Measured scan of single mutants.
Amino acid sequence: TTVHVNGVTYHFPNPEEAKKFVDRVVKEAGLTVEVKGNQWDVE
């Protein structure tokens, strides 16, 4: 699973890890998340 955060790419072994990361980032920074298949874009 690939997560893009403001142009930076993070790779995770599974969607659960990616979701935990995204949830944390979104809570801390108040960002928006767009999910496209296995790819997350966070802005």
Rank of each mutant, 00 (worst) to 15 (best):
T1Q: 04
T1I: 15
T1W: 15
T1K: 03
T2C: 15
T2W: 14
T2L: 09
T2E: 04
V3L: 04
V3K: 00
V3Y: 02
H4F: 14
H4N: 11
H4V: 14
H4T: 14
H4S: 13
H4Y: 14
H4E: 08
H4W: 14
V5S: 02
V5W: 14
V5C: 15
V5I: 13
V5Y: 14
N6T: 02
N6Q: 05
N6D: 05
N6R: 05
N6H: 05
N6V: 02
N6W: 12
N6I: 02
N6L: 09
G7K: 02
G7E: 02
G7R: 02
G7W: 02
G7C: 12
V8I: 11
V8P: 00
V8G: 03
V8D: 03
V8N: 04
V8F: 10
V8K: 13
T9G: 02
T9D: 04
T9W: 11
T9I: 13
Y10D: 00
Y10N: 00
Y10G: 00
Y10V: 02
H11Y: 13
H11F: 13
H11V: 07
H11M: 06
H11T: 08
F12G: 00
F12Y: 01
F12S: 00
P13H: 09
P13M: 11
N14H: 02
N14F: 02
P15R: 06
P15G: 06
P15Y: 14
P15W: 14
P15V: 12
P15M: 13
E16A: 09
E16R: 03
E16L: 06
E16K: 04
E17T: 04
E17M: 06
E17W: 02
E17K: 02
E17C: 10
A18C: 05
A18M: 03
A18D: 00
A18V: 01
A18G: 01
K19H: 06
K19R: 13
K20V: 07
K20H: 06
K20G: 03
K20I: 10
K20E: 09
K20W: 05
K20D: 06
F21K: 00
F21T: 00
F21G: 00
F21P: 00
F21M: 01
F21W: 05
F21R: 00
F21Y: 03
V22I: 13
V22W: 13
V22Y: 13
V22K: 05
D23R: 04
D23L: 08
D23Y: 04
D23M: 07
D23Q: 07
R24I: 07
R24N: 06
R24E: 07
R24P: 01
V25L: 15
V25T: 04
V26Y: 13
V26S: 11
V26T: 11
V26H: 07
V26M: 14
V26Q: 10
V26W: 12
V26R: 12
V26C: 15
K27P: 03
K27V: 06
K27R: 12
K27D: 05
E28D: 07
E28V: 09
E28I: 10
E28K: 07
E28Y: 11
A29N: 09
A29H: 12
G30C: 15
G30N: 08
G30W: 07
G30H: 07
G30Y: 06
G30V: 05
L31T: 10
L31A: 11
L31Y: 12
L31S: 09
T32I: 12
T32L: 11
T32S: 10
T32D: 09
V33W: 10
V33Y: 06
V33N: 08
V33Q: 04
V33K: 03
V33D: 09
E34R: 09
E34I: 15
E34K: 09
E34Y: 04
V35W: 10
V35L: 11
V35F: 11
V35I: 14
V35D: 11
V35A: 04
K36H: 15
K36W: 15
K36S: 15
K36G: 14
K36A: 14
K36N: 14
G37H: 10
G37W: 14
G37T: 06
G37I: 12
N38Q: 08
N38C: 15
Q39N: 11
Q39I: 13
Q39E: 13
Q39F: 10
Q39Y: 13
Q39K: 09
W40S: 06
W40F: 10
W40H: 08
W40L: 07
W40Q: 07
W40V: 08
D41E: 13
D41N: 10
D41W: 15
D41K: 05
D41G: 09
V42C: 14
V42Q: 10
V42W: 08
V42R: 07
V42S: 10
V42K: 09
E43K: 13
E43Q: 12
